[in-house]
Amino acid sequence: MNKVDYLRISLIDKCNFRCQYCMPNDAELSYILSQELLTKFELLTLLKEVFIPLGFTKFRLTGGEPLLRQDITEIVEEIANLPETKDLSLTTNAYLLSEKAESLFLAGLKRINISLDSLNPDTFDRIIGNTNKSRWQKTWQGILKAYEVGFNPLKLNVVIIPDINEHEILDLAELTINKNWHVRFIEFMPIGNNQLFSEKAWIPSSEIREKIKNKWGLEEANITGNGPADIFKIPHSKGTLGFISQMSECFCDRCNRMRLSADGWLRPCLLNETGQINLKQALRDGINTSEIREKVAQLLLIKPDINFKQRDAGTDMYDRTMSQIGG
């Protein structure tokens, strides 16, 4: 079991998109009230007095869409300036990134992951659930701005959905040839998508990899990151290709992370709610942070036994959509 030193922090559950795999249309959503979100002060208290003393040094800010959080730049700056922070990154849909990329970079954010499931505006709008004006162009502008500002690596996360965007696999992979971009293909997951999910609802990474290999060839990139992606590259390309195979290949033994939801729940596993702790409530109840730290330490001890190998046992464990957990 890897050392658990990586915390994914959801700052908000709201989003300006409604992607099928994150906020399915049939899901009943009730957004967290603003007063129920972890405040910046509460988050920093937990980092300084609970997580960092337990060895956490890598942090990723997520949502919902974290750029909707009004104090996002201040949060980035505060975490980046903690002397124990070894790595700080952010996941976004990039729709607001053209306006915020530079300020985030100057605040200390150096790595960014952007969700981009299609290069076709119509397909893109279908996936994000948009029925009004197209949002593809502004999203693309956000990606280009992030690249211009200097985010390195700039990662593009792609969820391949059968019969929707699977025909774009090669086009998306090609983005890595001439730019130092890192495209990561992620298998479609059944979180909050019980009606959509079936044996045909996801494409194994092995099939995606084979399609790319048949076009250009593929070689191992000999790069390791904070996550579970297997990294390859098209020969002589500037960027890399990552494959996250959480459905076809269980990688629980490599997991080094926990997740903190926007309303303060600490979750030891993406697909399993066993053992989760309401840290926000503990803070607001006046429980000493040393006691909270001890509870988290106990959860770390049993984390190896809490994993998503149990995902096949049924779907009752998926009480939240991805946006509510923190992607």
Rank of each mutant, 00 (worst) to 15 (best):
G264P: 09
G264L: 09
G264M: 07
W265V: 08
W265H: 12
W265K: 14
W265P: 01
W265G: 02
L266D: 05
R267D: 07
R267A: 03
R267Q: 13
R267S: 09
P268Q: 03
P268E: 04
P268F: 02
C269S: 05
L270R: 08
L270I: 11
L270G: 10
L270C: 09
L270W: 06
L270T: 11
N272V: 03
N272W: 01
E273C: 00
T274N: 14
T274K: 14
G275H: 07
G275F: 04
Q276I: 00
I277E: 12
I277Y: 11
I277K: 05
I277D: 13
N278L: 01
N278D: 15
N278R: 01
L279R: 02
L279C: 05
K280Q: 14
Q281Y: 13
Q281L: 12
Q281I: 07
A282G: 13
A282D: 13
A282T: 01
A282M: 15
A282S: 13
L283E: 03
L283H: 03
L283A: 04
L283V: 02
R284H: 03
R284D: 07
D285A: 10
D285L: 09
D285P: 01
D285F: 03
D285V: 00
G286N: 09
G286E: 04
G286M: 07
G286F: 06
I287T: 10
T289N: 10
S290W: 07
S290M: 12
S290R: 14
S290K: 15
E291Y: 07
E291F: 03
E291G: 00
I292Y: 02
R293V: 01
E294M: 08
E294S: 11
K295F: 04
K295T: 09
V296S: 00
V296M: 00
A297Q: 12
A297T: 02
A297E: 12
A297H: 06
Q298A: 07
Q298F: 05
Q298I: 00
L300I: 08
L301E: 14
L301W: 00
I302Q: 13
K303D: 08
P304E: 03
P304N: 04
D305L: 15
I306W: 10
I306E: 12
F308S: 15
